[in-house]
Design a protein around this nucleic acid. Sequence first.
DNA 1: CTCTGTGCAAAGCGTTTGCAAACGA
DNA 2: TCGTTTGCAAACGCTTTGCACAGAG
Lengths: 133, 133
Amino acid sequence: MNNYTRILREHNLKATPQRLAMANVLHVDGHISIESLYAVMIEKFTSISLATIYKNINLMVENSFIQEVKIPHAKSVYELTKDTHSHIVCEKCGKVNDVSLDLSTIIDNATKQSNFKIDKTDLVLSGVCKGCQ
Amino acid sequence: MNNYTRILREHNLKATPQRLAMANVLHVDGHISIESLYAVMIEKFTSISLATIYKNINLMVENSFIQEVKIPHAKSVYELTKDTHSHIVCEKCGKVNDVSLDLSTIIDNATKQSNFKIDKTDLVLSGVCKGCQ
DNA sequence: CTCTGTGCAAAGCGTTTGCAAACGA
DNA sequence: TCGTTTGCAAACGCTTTGCACAGAG
């Protein structure tokens, strides 16, 4: 039994070939939009339905197996859930990368300013990647 | 001629009553979703169309008069364009507030880590506001 | 007066739902 | 075997478009 089979089951999801392939695409690709995911999936499963993609994406999000990342001026992408991190997106080619940033000082400041009890950060930096410069 | 009339014209937009009211709602409310905006607008203009709201929102975004703010697990809200700032959203009541945070250290770090030329930050903090705690 | 903006209705598009058949455990 | 998942088609909801009339400049 491979890793994703186990993880899917831990999330009360049956390890169907479609789901295992989705998990694998997410693992390999890192960040992928619904339409790109569908394009990749239909290579392996010529008759897979968009409805299946959506149903599985939604189930996986509900079970915290994956997460949605909202990108300014672009479609959302999805990634496997991992430790807290930020994102950086290239305005030219659209590529999304992870970055590991310490936001604790920022959070302290924001807490003082707002009186909120802060428990989550969503930071998306935009710019131009090395390859596109 | 009031402020918004002038600003709209500078953006090549005619200062219609509907647009002036939208600008005013955005100014007073700070951050508002399409559906809330429509609900407020229809009070003043009983026969205003959602199409008008959308057309104007899109024109105003294109002209950088307003900006979209994407919120995790919620609908986007719109705000008048102003100096760079971050947002904090209450997970209980949904209220969105501005916060002024210095992200320069974060940007330096991210630049080193990613080799991107960074020019924009979108930070949305989530938590529980004072009133909801 | 001219050109832009508005309101309405219809179209468009991404996403969700219902259902019968297929499949995982 | 039993409950879940799939694929298809239809439905849905949000957003956009086309058009005739109204209104801003």
